[in-house]
Write a protein that binds this DNA or RNA. Structure first.
Lengths: 191, 191
DNA sequence: TCCAACATGTAAGGAGTTACATGATTTC
DNA sequence: GAAATCATGTAACTCCTTACATGTTGGA
């Protein structure tokens, strides 16, 4: 069991919703957990094989007429057990992310204020665009409510609102900070 | 010039505030940009050497009496130029982080609700503890205001408030979500 | 005397991305 | 006929952490 790698659990979680091919999984991740998780094919295909080798999934080739043959992976009981074990496990302390934007902001005194203001505006635009994506996802979830989704929906919406809360906080902070730095660049008068 | 690695710029940024040893830099990072950036010795020492090889820094051994000899690195004019070039450069699109907490939350329907509630409480506690650390840093910054720091202070405080805004948003979201899931676990009556 | 902090470094290995290779099928 | 999408996979490479090795100095 590797110390860091959580890819296996992301894959097990997706497989738990039904049989998928490697290609499927990649697309599925983008459409579901894409705003806080990502995987590349370079990870997915090798790890699917190790899941099979470990008995956590099975593979069988599906050759439907008029369609490219593909390898479908199905979670096993053992895989299901392992998924639940991990889900129940206490989450390790959050690793400190590396935030390039904050790194540049921290050293902002080195460059003209306009540079920092532009970084702030760009960061704000990014957060706005993320919010728009979330709104689209939310609209989509509201439309396609299948019975199979019902039990998952509250959890999916919760992760969505997490992203929204973060993005909204960033936007407010950008506005405050832009105002503060924008003001401070003006000459003081009458004081 | 590597495609991803920003360590060199973090080091240049620190060196720009004065000569440092590798050991110093590690400690300095923890005390300054530690809430959004980290480096290990395994990165710092080799990269300091490449900075020297590239003419962005110089090294000289400092042997003060009654103190361990250490290698002090000083930024060069070329290093300073390179730092400013990077600071001015547009920030690449943010990579999607991998959030294990959200991953577990997303698959929450698989496990008893108590498991998710506990994850939520732990996540909230972590955010609270981060807020406390920020308050300490803020208090420290308010006390030790040296003239050399004056121009940097607004930027340092801005990164601090960024972290605070994020942590506060997380806490509010945890409270909302705990309330929602806590409620939904109770049997409905009178409806 | 022992531990924490100071100080520098390397080796090994895991994690993860990117680019490439290959080819079928569908859509414009 | 071309381009996009479906579909699987590997090789090379970078990044980064962890563990280890080594030794000094200062304080309890």
């Amino acid at each position: 069991m590797p110390a860091v790698n959580k890819t296996r659990y992301a894959l097990l979680g997706i497989l738990n919703t039904g049989a998928h091919s490697g290609y499927d999984i990649k697309k599925g991740i983008e459409r579901s957990i894409g705003h806080f998780w990502h995987e590349s094919y370079g990870q997915i295909y090798p790890i699917l094989r190790t899941l099979v080798a470990e008995g956590l999934a099975t593979a069988h080739t599906e050759a439907l007429p008029g369609r490219l043959a593909r390898i479908m992976y199905t979670i096993t009981d053992q895989g299901h057990t392992e998924l639940r074990r991990w889900l129940t496990e206490r989450i390790e302390t959050l690793p400190i992310e590396r935030n390039e934007f904050l790194l540049k902001l921290f050293f902002g005194a080195e460059v003209p204020l306009t540079v920092t203001l532009e970084h702030l505006r760009q960061h704000r635009r990014q957060a706005e665009s993320v919010l728009e994506t979330f709104a689209e996802i939310e609209a989509m979830l509201a439309i396609q409510v299948t019975p199979a989704m019902a039990s998952n929906l509250p959890f999916w919406l919760a992760t969505l609102r997490y992203g929204q809360a973060q993005a909204e906080a960033v936007i407010r902070w950008c506005d405050d900070t832009l105002k503060q730095f924008g003001m401070s660049s003006l000459p003081l008068s009458g004081v």
